[in-house]
Amino acid sequence: MPKQKRATSRSTVNAKSRRIPAKAGVTRLRQPTSCRAGAQGKTQTKEETQSVPPREDKSPEHQDLIKYTGGCHCGAVRFEVWASKSLHVFDCNCSICTKKQNRHFIVPASRFHLLKGAESLTTYTFQTRMAKHTFCKICGVQSFYTPRSNPDGYGVAPHCLDKGEEEPVITLEYFNGNEWESSMAQHKTIKDMSKL
């Protein structure tokens, strides 16, 4: 296994960063010390995200960004997302992210486009009902969702991106979701990640 390089991070208390190649495989670098039990969850079958036609050109908003495509395992859900070559990926240790091994990078809603599969999506919510954990109801894969931290954007799973000519460079940041409110109050940049 190649040596992992340290990356400079703008993260705050309770977060560590490591730079890893995107194709090195997803490995657990640190196990969470605790996991808060979640409240009874709820599955919603009506999905608010609508399929839209793919964009063919780069708008001024997408300058200096790369168009990635991706989707779920069975192919029923497909999307495109505009993001930089360097992806800042969060590895949260809250109850649901631990169970799902949910690693994601955040983009503004206008940089994410569902290409197909709105009818194949279902959404799970729990506790505050702020986060919308969207997944394919055929294969069960969550390739994107609406995070509680950024309800105006999307959290996209980098491991659900298609292989392409432009491979992203991933910086992984641990986020202490077990102490969500205090971690959010201390984090200086996460809320801005869904803004243009």
Rank of each mutant, 00 (worst) to 15 (best):
R129W: 00
T27R: 12
C160T: 15
T8R: 13
I170H: 03
L161S: 04
P108E: 09
V81A: 11
K16L: 14
M193K: 13
P21T: 07
K116C: 10
I170M: 14
A7T: 09
D64F: 02
Q50I: 10
T123F: 02
L29I: 10
I106S: 04
G38K: 04
C35W: 00
M1L: 09
K58Q: 13
Y124N: 03
R10L: 13
A15R: 13
S84R: 10
A76W: 01
G71D: 05
H113N: 15
P108T: 07
N14E: 08
H159K: 06
F126N: 09
Y154T: 01
D64Y: 00
G38M: 13
K42P: 00
G71P: 08
P32A: 04
L161E: 05
Q31F: 06
K116Y: 00
I170W: 07
T98M: 04
Y154E: 03
E119W: 00
A39Y: 02
E61D: 13
N102D: 13
E47R: 08
L196I: 09
K23Y: 11
L87M: 12
K46C: 05
A76Q: 12
S95P: 02
A24R: 08
S84E: 14
R28N: 12
G25V: 05
Q50E: 13
C74P: 07
G75W: 03
K137P: 10
G155R: 03
Q127R: 14
G25C: 05
K163N: 12
T125F: 01
K23V: 09
T146W: 01
A109V: 05
C160I: 07
S149E: 11
T122R: 15
E165F: 05
S86Q: 14
H113D: 05
L115H: 06
M1N: 08
A37S: 09
Y124H: 12
S120W: 04
L65C: 02
F126P: 03
P53Q: 04
Q4F: 15
N93F: 01
M193W: 14
K116L: 03
A39C: 07
S59C: 02
S11W: 06
Q101T: 13
P32C: 04
G117I: 03
P147D: 01
M130Y: 02
F144P: 07
V89D: 02
T122S: 13
R55Q: 12
S183F: 04
